[in-house]
Design a protein around this nucleic acid. Structure first.
Lengths: 235, 235
DNA sequence: CCGGATCCGAATCGATACTG
DNA sequence: CAGTATCGATTCGGATCCGG
């Protein structure tokens, strides 16, 4: 499966031998949200060719990263070892956030990628200061229920079927939504702190559907990622 | 250069568009140690085809990750943005460490990969308890001077030319080496804590060249990575 | 319809040779 | 030393096909 290894006795090389092939870490990203069926993964990675998805799933299984999900019919899930890739995916997401400019033509936002983005941006310390809040967020055609409860984060899709446990969380959250808003790509300037809540609303980067607009600042503190370094500070 | 993007407006996808191609992160790994010339990179990545190295360096420059090093003739170095990949490389190294079994035929250990491995395994808290120690470590045909000074880590190759600043660190360190040892791949069991210093010496995993063998335990505390999770604990 | 397997042209990779 | 050029071997991407 890894016909071509990097040939180095090194942790980084070993990791890349397992998850360094094209698409592999995006599959892992989606599986970090939860078990997924073949067609779920395909839907979440619109550009992946079906033979590549198939090949990657086989390789990831052979590498002990992924296994068949016994409960979900036709499902895949991460092994314990695979779940430990969360650090890697979060680090990549933090770094890559800084180079996300405007979306390119045809770029999509998926439910799973946005869910992982919230996990990446989540600041536990800030959440501890405001331990409870519930947001409903619309980006593109993805809608998520983002809940901070006792300083812990849960993200659940607003629509669609979810496991019973998550459905309970979702229904509970929807009973008391603090803030519901729709946002475009400019939301990243709120996440990076380059735009205050009020500025974001004024510039139509964020449209408040429901709730107290001041909550948007709390949102920006709870979910924060560093903005891009200016190229000038290159030294 | 990135003719084929993943087409997702997502930090992880954006990161992989920049450094997800084959060999890219290994080039970054080596550049994290310091500026390198084309031939240094080639020597540190014995299996990379020269046209691929050339192509990657171009792409990484276009992506703002790498630039020509003004000081070193023919050199490359990371930009400020590129240096921020350290988190990613360390996370990958930590994860990949767990799947490093025995070295495969033809696997090499390079100076730069071992240097980054020490940075990955370095435990600042443990170093704070023993803030000063100097080791000379031989693995394969790589020899490094590993120095902890006031709780901070510096790794310098034992042989070969280095910039003046590093040469000073090296000479200073060599003046009072606490422990010099040679090790094979089994060194990873010391790093993972699965072998005590005494056991490692007894089983010939580590050969003490010079110094107090008891220092090997301190070494194992200062440089620690989690061992592989047993497949049984998969839930 | 879901979960893939198969086929094929296009792009990339890997090995080697060659050049300023 | 620092790459470019070339070319066969792989892999990738897109589409189609097939069994349950």
């Amino acid at each position: 499966m890894a016909g071509r290894s990097y040939g180095q006795y090194c942790g980084v090389a070993s990791a890349l031998d397992l998850v360094g092939e094209r698409w592999a870490l995006l599959i892992v990203r989606d599986l970090l949200v939860g078990p997924r069926r073949y067609s779920d993964l395909q839907a979440g990675l619109p550009r992946i060719p079906t033979n590549i998805l198939s090949a990657r799933l086989k390789e990831l299984q052979a590498g002990g990263v992924v296994r068949r999900a016994p409960v979900v019919r036709g499902g895949y899930e991460l092994t314990a070892y695979g779940r430990e890739l969360e650090d890697v995916v979060l680090a990549l997401g933090r770094w890559g956030f800084k180079s996300m400019g405007e979306p390119q033509d045809g770029d999509v936002v998926t439910s799973d990628s946005l869910t992982m983005a919230f996990r990446t941006a989540f600041v536990p310390d800030a959440a501890r200061r405001h331990p409870d809040a519930t947001y409903v967020v619309h980006v593109g055609d993805v809608s998520l229920v983002v809940r901070v409860e006792r300083g812990r984060l849960a993200v659940v899709p607003l629509n669609g079927a979810v496991p019973a446990a998550l459905a309970a969380v979702r229904d509970d959250a929807l009973a008391h939504v603090d803030l519901e808003f729709a946002a475009g790509p400019g939301i990243r300037d709120v996440i990076s702190g380059e735009l205050s809540g009020a500025e974001a609303i004024e510039r139509d980067v964020v449209h408040i559907v429901h709730g107290d607009p001041d909550m948007l600042d709390r949102f920006g503190q709870t979910f924060h990622l560093e903005p891009a370094v200016p190229p000038s500070s290159d030294r």
